[in-house]
């Protein structure tokens, strides 16, 4: 189990326990996190699942080519820690992760 914490735009937090192979966009929708739309269903085609990664305990794989392109072209001022959370997958070696919802 991995502990995933979403900080919403109003500053409130939602923390959930997640299973392997689930992605954070799915978790956000299932747990009613505000500000994550996931318009493309996690196909890495929109940018409506933009978050910044605040803290990682364990291992987190970096963004793929499409994700980097979307961050570069669809988001006005991406942060160094910007990610599309549909591309962040829960895995055994990821103990905990904290993200903040960003403008899509």
């Amino acid at each position: 189990m991995t502990q995933v914490t979403f900080t919403q735009t109003d500053g409130t937090q939602i923390t959930v326990e997640a299973n392997n192979n689930e992605h954070l966009m799915k978790l956000a929708l299932e747990n009613g996190v505000e500000g994550i739309t996931g318009a493309c269903g996690g196909s890495c085609m929109c940018a409506t699942c933009h978050v910044s990664v605040d803290h990682v305990s364990g291992n987190l794989a970096g963004p793929g080519e499409m994700e980097e392109e979307i961050l570069d072209m669809e988001i006005d001022n991406p942060l160094a820690t910007s990610r599309l959370c549909c591309q962040i997958f829960v895995a055994n070696d990821l103990n905990a992760i904290k993200v903040t919802v960003q403008e899509g």
């Binding site: 799915k26 929708l29 299932e30 009613g32 994550i36 269903g41």
Partner: peptide
């Protein structure tokens, strides 16, 4: 059989 929701639970 995972399902991806169109809108968050409770929306």
């Amino acid at each position: 059989l995972p399902m991806e929701l169109l809108q968050a639970n409770g929306y």
